[in-house]
Design a protein around this nucleic acid. Structure first.
Length: 258
DNA sequence: ATGGCTGAGCTACTCAGA
């Protein structure tokens, strides 16, 4: 089972790139973030033509998440937390892998910049609510897979220049502690578990030649609950889509789980 | 290096991203 997470930065502006990527990589489940469109304008037909069902939680202009899948999901929900600003940032659904009923939790965490503003408070509160809901959910179902754009740089190794981000909403200790809090509920940051010292990124700014200079950061993650680690096969950050014309500023992270 | 570039909504320019 190949599960992929990708912040596409507009599903409509990126549709050709996404279709080509799906043809190349054949995911079973594709978790999208920042679709930047309402449900009614989501290109479900294009994905259906490739054999995928779309579950969409969109909104106008900003944010929005979706799950594109070869297999029908059960119990798809968009109310995992009550979002203070009613933004579309989480979609969940159940998937059977072997005998396990896995809950997929696809998230787009608020950016939070600039710090010390209401945007930063929104991010902190959002993460607080999210952690609270995960804590409740993992008691009911120990098989949780959280994936998406966390907008958190977990450790210094996860960004090209940590000094520049240590007081940023993505790198502040207060925010990185939220990530650790989540891990401590019983999860593994699966990329870091298998790549102890590797310095790879999932995001590069559009400006200042960040991609060419590899000025990136690792902010897209797969968290596997401890009960799922035995099912884990492989994880890979696929940099190819970031090198294409009209790319998203994020690149996909790919997981094999059986 | 709080600038750089890109997308949505709209059709000039702001907001948002990280």
């Amino acid at each position: 089972m190949k599960i992929i997470s990708w912040n596409v930065n507009s599903v409509r502006a990126r549709i050709e790139n996404i279709i080509n990527y799906i043809k190349d990589s054949s995911p079973d489940v594709l978790l999208l973030q920042e679709i930047k469109t309402q449900n009614e304008n989501f290109p479900s037909r294009e994905f259906k033509n490739l054999g995928y069902t779309s579950y969409v939680f969109g909104q106008k202009s900003y944010n929005g998440v979706a799950i594109i899948t070869k297999y029908m999901l059960k119990n798809v929900q968009t109310n995992f937390i009550k979002d203070d600003l009613k933004q579309s940032r989480i979609i969940t659904g159940e998937l059977k892998i072997n005998l396990k009923k896995i809950e997929l939790i696809n998230i787009y965490v608020p950016n939070g910049n600039p710090v010390d503003t209401e945007k930063y408070e929104y991010k902190k509160n959002w993460l607080k609510k999210f952690i609270f809901s995960v804590k409740k959910r993992i008691i009911k179902n120990p098989n949780l897979l959280i994936a998406g754009d966390f907008n958190i740089i977990p450790e210094e190794i996860d960004v090209h220049d940590f000094e520049r981000y240590k007081n940023d909403a993505l790198g502040r200790l207060e925010i990185r502690k939220k990530f650790r809090e989540l891990i401590n509920l019983g999860f593994k940051d699966i990329y870091r578990l298998v790549n102890k010292k590797k310095q790879e990124y999932t995001f590069w700014d559009y400006f200042a030649g960040s991609w060419q200079k590899n000025y990136g950061m690792r902010i897209d993650h797969f968290l596997l609950s401890n009960s799922l680690v035995e099912n884990f096969e492989a994880v890979n950050i696929n940099k190819k889509p970031r090198s294409k014309l009209k790319p998203s500023d994020h690149t996909p992270i790919e997981l094999i789980i059986n």
